[in-house]
Design a protein around this nucleic acid. Structure first.
Lengths: 156, 156
DNA sequence: ATGGTTGTTTCACCTGCTGAAGTATTCAGT
DNA sequence: ACTGAATACTTCAGCAGGTGAAACAACCAT
């Protein structure tokens, strides 16, 4: 299948115009990664929505289901301002999925922790994240190993 | 490097808890893809911000720089409601990067097209998207070819 | 004790996004 | 040609995500 750069811009990401310094192969890979990113995003959002969660709420809940943590750390991991997390946790808390606990070691901090229901939701969410596994089903173990190693090296 | 699933959740995405039906290799690949997605996103947003654009504005401008098109089609490609595009194009237009032109063939539609300045911005934006090429620099041509083929098959 | 730092919240404000309603235009059937 | 359905866009209300500044409480070092 020929890659026609001028008309196959399906996802909104990734410029892929010809450029002096980059070869077509690299551009094609970049374009493919853009497609993977767009697809991953879309399906993550859908999975979240199927549990009445927004993407951001799902990410926070997932994070907390691994380990309760202070607001501040959520913000660091999500790479946003702490004041933003306040609102997201508010919404999760008002739905009974998360609760704020005092940190015995430091009375300034509030630990966000999933409730029982929050944990269950996080589990169900994870299961509906099959999307991320399914596209891999077409690859053999050997191929998956190669893919893993290449991605690792890409990430440095 | 060992992958400790219980504590290496760096990006906000991708559940990676052990699961009955999925093998560790697949989980690792899923986790890596999550990291790629997070990184791609982050850097795309940064590149946009460095040109005083939001991610959504950058995506629309990039799309239009390939080819002017009706609002409706922008919405289709960005997978959102047309009413949303109105606002984004409004903001781009008020900054002189985009203009609305009548479609001679159908007086209902408005063609959004980049201005000269918009085209220049799109070009500069594309160049600052080196982020997407740079991580690939560490891979040989052969490896890039393998990666391309694997990604293609993943996307089906 | 004092003063600086840190963790959280509140607030005003913006963007993105949806869904419903409104306007203008096109198009198909009669 | 006329009518009614469909289509393209805008407007609006309303929500979530996001920032930055200001406030407050609690910590910590001197």
């Amino acid at each position: 299948m020929l890659l026609d750069i001028s008309c196959c811009q399906v996802n909104g990401y990734a410029g892929s115009m010809p450029s002096r310094r980059t070869d077509p192969l690299t551009l094609e890979v970049v374009e493919l990664i853009g497609s993977v990113v767009a697809r991953y995003h879309e399906e993550y959002e859908d999975a979240a929505a199927s549990h009445q969660l927004t993407g951001a709420q799902a990410r926070v809940l997932n994070l907390l289901s691994l380990e309760p943590m202070p607001m501040r750390r959520i913000a660091q991991q999500l790479k946003c301002e702490p004041s933003n997390i306040t609102g997201i946790v508010d919404r999760l808390e008002s739905r009974g999925l998360v609760e704020r606990r005092p940190d015995p070691a430091d009375r300034r901090v509030k630990l966000a922790a999933p409730t029982q229901e929050g944990l269950q939701t996080a589990d169900r969410l994870r299961e509906s994240l099959d999307f991320a596994r399914e596209p891999l089903a077409g690859l053999s173990t050997a191929e998956r190993t190669v893919l893993r190693d290449l991605l690792k090296r890409m990430l440095g």
